[in-house]
Design a protein around this nucleic acid. Structure first.
Length: 651
RNA sequence: CGCGGGAUGGAGCAGUUGGUAGCUCGUCGGGCUCAUAACCCGAAGGUUGCCGGUUCAAGUCCGGCUCCCGCAACCA
């Protein structure tokens, strides 16, 4: 065997501007599953995760809260580490880009690439918003103004260092072509290739407009910008280029897998390899992008109240169930939908009904027929061979699927063995065997074979469900040490020791009553928000602040007649309406294009706020706002229920 | 023509290099009683979004079209 024994796997480093959600948990759990699997196979595994803590956004947010940036991120990092704890993430290290061990490597690499001629100083030109201290590209601007604050921007030049990424175009394409597994899945590879072919610009790798970052070693006005800083964590996390005691960890490079969500594949499949080429460092073996988790009712957002807090789910269902569901329910590599209802369904069907119940009924029978001592198999029959060969096939398939990061089918394969075992009980009818003393030998073999299926599936499930085997072992003492399992033991039949003790225990995966779920996510999210440092609730209908009649009177509400309506070009939600207000005509832009067609509105009398400050939307000036009532899904424009002349006052 | 994903039995999804369409849940019928109202068997249910092309053969390749969904933009 010449294959090296190390296995280095990474997640992205997360940006601590907010608490993490289920999407981050997904990546990290998947990587953890792989790391545990490889460890069980005896590989020398290094699993790295961490946080990307630099940048203007962090700096500004911290200042707004009256904190030092480091103080601000320290707090968030604590909560992230707690989350990984709860999810039983087994990372070997946690790298923070603010640590000196990271900063030193960034500076060394920057210097190295500079010395070698691939970093040069030039000018970055962009639209600059002075109050926001931010550059924007032409495309980012909102009607020529700052997309953040709406103020004027000016075309400014900033001195910046640039990385000659364009130079590596051909080498990148050649490498991708020569290594089909480098970018996975395939659809992402195609995307990256066409992106590269469309032309690579040199990359701006330093900034002078903020200071919260790693200083450029030879030019202290500059800090290293974003990706040139962040990506290097994969090296600094194992002490690469450091001349110190960590040198031992060099052996992990090149990384076996960089795992991430699809939105940052380009940075990992283009910028990162180009940087490594420039620094003359071997490229990682594989860059794998999985899909996004979508939530029922659209993308998760705070205003929709559908943010899923993994901690809440763990408290409710346990870490094994949460991890299992993430890995099983979503086809890795593709986008998928998530809902708590699905989680409950999955957990009930697979873990409670099939797996948990298999353990429960087997244990009960061993207790009933053999006094809680696992018997040795005595009388075997042909049927047993089929069971054994399926167990062997399951081991092979699970191994194979995991190696391909196909978590869904890995778990499906294991569950098929569990199902087979349940069927085996029906086929052998142990309760009938138990009534006949002459068939006790056969009964013993049946019990033993079931225990074997439980043992094997237990090993195979260990990477996904880190607490399962410990809990299982309390009922059926199949393992000497349930925390130190050997993967290949699942490939051998007959390792369960006859004589081991079987005890009645609590249900390993209690069935969840789905009808008892009361608006689970929304309610829990509220609790989470309440516990978090006070963030004001924006729209509490009942507890709305009271206003005086004078304040209300400041609004000039009028009946207006829609005389023309058209869709705003290149906008999904906007309609441009011409309305008549008495003798006056004015243009109002309304965000109701997804609920009303222009035809429906023409001739309609609506209510508008007539004295609203005009604003430009997509280049069209809007003089007023149409009033409409709405829920998440329905929008209804208000209209007086008697015919009134346009211009009538509303109060 | 901003970027990307998708359209497969009631629902959610698989379908590797083209060769009779599978899985989970649900529904209906049956069986069993060791078990967490769990388990096992059987059945119904799809002209694989539309049109055209390549081929002996296409869900699977090519072209066109329609519709959905994310990102971005945007809700005065």
């Amino acid at each position: 065997m010449t294959e090296r024994n190390t296995y280095y796997i990474t997640t992205p480093i997360y940006y601590p501007s907010d608490n993490l959600h289920i999407g981050h948990a997904y990546t990290t759990v998947a990587a953890d599953c792989l790391a545990r699997f490889k460890r069980m196979q005896g590989r020398d595994v290094f699993y790295l995760t961490g946080t990307d803590e630099h940048g203007q956004k962090i700096e500004r947010t911290a200042r707004e809260k009256g904190q030092e940036p480091i103080e601000y991120v320290d707090n968030i990092v604590i909560s992230i580490k707690e989350l990984w704890d709860r999810l039983m993430i087994s990372h070997d290290d946690f790298i923070r880009t603010t640590e000196t061990r990271h900063r030193a490597v960034v500076q060394k690499l920057f210097q190295k690439v500079y010395d070698q001629g691939d970093i040069y100083v030039s000018e970055y030109e962009g639209w600059y918003c002075t109050p926001c201290e931010t550059f924007f590209t032409e495309r980012q601007l909102a009607e020529g103004k700052c997309p953040d604050c709406g103020r004027e921007v000016e075309l400014l030049k900033e001195e910046s260092y640039f990385f000659r990424m364009g130079k590596y175009t051909e080498r990148l394409l050649a490498h991708i072509a020569a290594n089909p597994d480098f970018i996975q899945p395939e659809s992402r590879r195609n995307e990256v290739v066409s992106f590269i072919k469309s032309g690579l610009d040199d990359l701006c790798v330093s900034r002078t407009t903020f200071s919260w970052g790693v200083p450029v070693p030879f030019d202290s006005k500059h800090v290293v910008y974003v990706w040139f800083d962040a990506l290097i964590n994969y090296l600094s996390g194992i002490g690469f280029l450091a001349e110190d005691e960590n040198a031992d960890n060099f052996r992990y490079w090149p990384a076996d897998v960089h795992l991430m969500a699809k939105d940052i594949i380009r940075f990992h499949a283009v910028i990162w390899p180009a940087m490594l080429m420039a620094a003359n460092i071997p490229l990682p073996k594989k860059v794998f992008a999985h899909g996004w988790i979508m939530l029922e009712g659209g993308k998760m957002s705070k205003s929709k109240g559908n943010v899923v807090d993994p901690v809440v789910l763990i408290n409710k269902y346990g870490v094994d169930a949460v991890r299992y569901n993430l890995l099983k329910e979503l086809s890795f590599g593709q986008d998928g939908y998530y809902s708590e209802e699905m989680l409950v369904g999955r957990v009930n069907a697979d873990l409670a009904n099939d797996l948990g119940n298999l353990v429960s009924r087997t244990a009960a029978m061993i207790i009933k027929f053999f006094g809680g001592i696992l018997p040795a198999p005595a009388v075997t029959e042909a049927l047993d061979e089929e069971l054994k060969s399926q167990a062997a096939a399951t081991f092979k398939e699970a191994t194979d699927r995991l190696d391909r990061l196909d978590f869904t089918n890995y778990l499906q394969a294991v569950l098929r063995l569990v199902s087979r075992a349940n069927k085996y009980i029906d086929e052998t009818e142990p309760w009938a065997l138990g009534r006949d003393e002459n068939r006790k030998g056969r009964l013993a073999a049946v019990m033993y074979n079931l225990a074997e299926c439980i043992r094997i599936s237990g090993i195979l499930l260990a990477p996904a469900m880190p607490t399962y085997n410990e809990r299982l072992n309390a009922q059926m003492a199949l393992f000497a040490d349930p925390l130190k399992l050997n993967w290949d033991d699942a490939g051998q039949w007959g390792l369960a020791q006859p004589g081991l003790a079987v005890k009645k225990g609590k249900a390993l995966f209690p069935r969840i009553d789905i009808s008892s779920l009361d608006l689970p996510v929304a309610e829990e999210a509220e609790q989470g928000a309440a516990a978090a440092p006070a963030e004001s609730k924006s729209e509490a209908a009942s507890g709305a602040e009271l206003v005086s009649i004078e304040e209300f009177a400041r609004l000039d509400l009028r009946v207006a007649e829609v005389i023309a309506a058209e869709k705003m070009p290149k906008a999904d939600k906007l309609l441009i309406l011409k309305v008549k207000l008495g003798d006056e005509e004015r243009t109002v832009v309304a965000g109701i294009a997804q609920h009303y067609t222009p035809e429906e509105l023409v001739g309609k009398k609506v209510v508008i706020v007539a004295n609203l400050k005009p604003v430009k939307l997509r280049g069209v000036e809007s003089h007023g706002m149409i009033l409409a009532a709405s829920t998440d899904t329905v929008v209804a424009v208000l209209s007086p229920d008697k015919d009134l002349p346009s211009g009538s006052k509303v109060k």
